[in-house]
Design a protein around this nucleic acid. Sequence first.
DNA 1: CTCTGTGAATGCTTTCACAGCG
DNA 2: CGCTGTGAAAGCATTCACAGAG
Lengths: 204, 204
Amino acid sequence: MDLSNNTIERLCRIFGHLGAIEKTGVEFVSSAELAGALGATSYTVRKDLSLLGITGFTRKGYEVSSLKKELGSKLRLAGRRKACIVGLGRLGSALLDYEKFQEDGFEIVAGFDRSVNKLERIRTHIEVYPVGSMKDVIKEKGIEMGIITVPGEHAQEVADRLTGCGVRGILNFSPVEVSVPDKVVSVNMDFTNALRFIAAKLGG
Amino acid sequence: MDLSNNTIERLCRIFGHLGAIEKTGVEFVSSAELAGALGATSYTVRKDLSLLGITGFTRKGYEVSSLKKELGSKLRLAGRRKACIVGLGRLGSALLDYEKFQEDGFEIVAGFDRSVNKLERIRTHIEVYPVGSMKDVIKEKGIEMGIITVPGEHAQEVADRLTGCGVRGILNFSPVEVSVPDKVVSVNMDFTNALRFIAAKLGG
DNA sequence: CTCTGTGAATGCTTTCACAGCG
DNA sequence: CGCTGTGAAAGCATTCACAGAG
């Protein structure tokens, strides 16, 4: 499909928000309401949805559960996806147990770290392994996505290893932009840069 | 200044990357090299810099340390900024000690949580307080930025409280988009949505 | 030559405006 | 009416192309 990244990102957020609406029992939602929850405009929401061929009801808006279902199937967010985390420092081990992931269909099924020491100390119900066993574990468990929480110096090396093992999606929390093969999708989340951005916008 | 968010974000990343270059002792860097480290193009980098009135040297590129200094002052990234974290669960307490922040001029000077229990259990060298004392602590310490790591249900309420206390910048890790007064800058980092985005781009 | 600096051109995204529908 | 759906217009961001400088 030829959706822009912006559109995909918004659609994913809509998908997430629909889960919340579903719980309230509300049946219909208008593009304006979705827009409000997203920080977008109603036209943008309508256009985004129409790009997927999704259509709502005059005077009522979109039907929550069927919209969620359609988004789920069109964006392939319906099934469960397996992910692993590389780097079990403070952040990595916090993410190991981040419940939101599991709720949303993303299963963290393995953690990796270089330090055997760390592996021994960690308290979690998820299995942890030394990086050496990455290839075997990833193949065996069918892991599709990797989350990088190692220091910047090692991020590229870890990304290479992950893609070498067949991982096609990478969420990189290190401050270093990693480069990956064409077919691999990678997203960077650099906390420090987010603070810089805020500081820059604040001025003064 | 009238820079676009994209430009500001890239400039902040350049600023961060210059720190890394500085350590290697290299003196000059070309727009193409910066672009490589950023995943952008050399024209974009040159244009971004020229929008700030920053200029390089023919045949040599930009002088690393003076570029860093200029960016630091133009984007107001030079000084130290104080921040607090609200919500000391796994993620929040991991961020309390996230060294990268401190290295980059962002000082986490306080953590807040509703649960006295949690406050007692936490092991960190940063001072932690019950949310009730937010106003006093923020004023007293001159905190400018707030990091929200509470569950989505409470994110808006925390954002309101923070802005009510005079905080002007918010980094929100909850999956809920918070709405803030006009003058306040807020950035959302939704991990789950990042995974969704990756999954959607992967397709299959 | 090899790099920067930048107006002009291109290509995206968002916004608008309004027809259509219940 | 109050909503969606969408071509057309406007607004932005990126890319290009090339002059300028050492």
